[in-house]
Write a protein that binds this DNA or RNA. Structure first.
Lengths: 143, 143
DNA sequence: TAGTAATTTATAATCATTGTCATTATGCAA
DNA sequence: TTGCATAATGACAATGATTATAAATTACTA
């Protein structure tokens, strides 16, 4: 659905370029929480001359507009999530993968409703992240 | 209470060095969530030849041992918190300060009891962070 | 008090991210 | 449709936090 990516870019006031469209299509439905470098290396096959700067720039604009999430969970690099709906993340220290954690998962005693709150202690809240770190199931089983 | 810092270091199996003692005393009760550089620049007055590596090394060891928290909330650098008790953080995008947010604050619909949970979706959880980002009260008032 | 293993320090290296600026492409207006 | 102002792109250099290396020093154990 190329149409959606065009609409999205227009809605947030960005010019529609082939690079941006390709980036958005790459991100659409992507559950791997890629880094800028991950995205860059995939775009290179389609745009051999694309610059990392372009990737960073577009990702920053999309995050500003609230279309994607910039995750502060990987200690080595920023990770990006096209899923803007409220949910949380788990980072595996061993393999480096980031997994989604549904907000409704039973371990949460109550419903956070985090994003409904306008402020905390008088501070204006723009984004909320609930981050878990540890060792993922697979890495744990491999000992 | 120099005695406490000695005990703490011994308890987690680290050698007691003057640098480490000074670092721990600097951190004790510190609510500013300093970066490694912040800590380094204060230690330099007492130890003119101290290395940044020593600061990073000690902070990493303390975090591994669970004595301090390594916060992934400031997009530019790691921040450290000597308060190991469960609580959350707010980062101001304008001034860069990090504020504590008590776990009991009313906006939390339920009690997370985050640290009591051994795993999520089969993953082993070691640490949890709930991070808010936005504009702090003071910066907001200054427009 | 000596030995050894960890720690510290000086220094260089790494690497994600950002800045600069010339070139190019987009979208609006005529 | 064309031309233009402006934004976006790409090449490249720079930044800056963090990590690696290795030699010198120090802390702790026996």
């Amino acid at each position: 659905m190329q149409y959606m990516t065009v609409r999205l870019l227009q809605r947030i006031g960005l010019k529609v370029t082939p690079q941006r469209q390709a980036l958005l299509e790459l991100l659409n439905g992507n559950k791997t929480h890629p880094s800028a470098e991950d995205i860059y290396s995939k775009l290179v096959s389609k745009f051999p001359r694309i610059s990392l700067k372009t990737v960073y720039n577009t990702l920053a604009r999309l995050a500003e507009a609230g279309e994607i999430q910039e995750l502060d969970i990987d200690p080595y690099r920023k990770r990006f999530d096209p899923n803007a709906a409220p949910h949380h993340h788990f980072y595996c220290k061993i393999c480096g993968r980031v997994f989604d954690v549904a907000q409704g998962d039973s371990f949460l005693a109550g419903d956070l409703n985090l994003l409904d709150r306008a402020d905390v202690n008088g501070h204006q809240i723009d984004t909320v992240q609930l981050n878990f770190k540890g060792v993922c199931k697979e890495c744990k089983e491999k000992r």
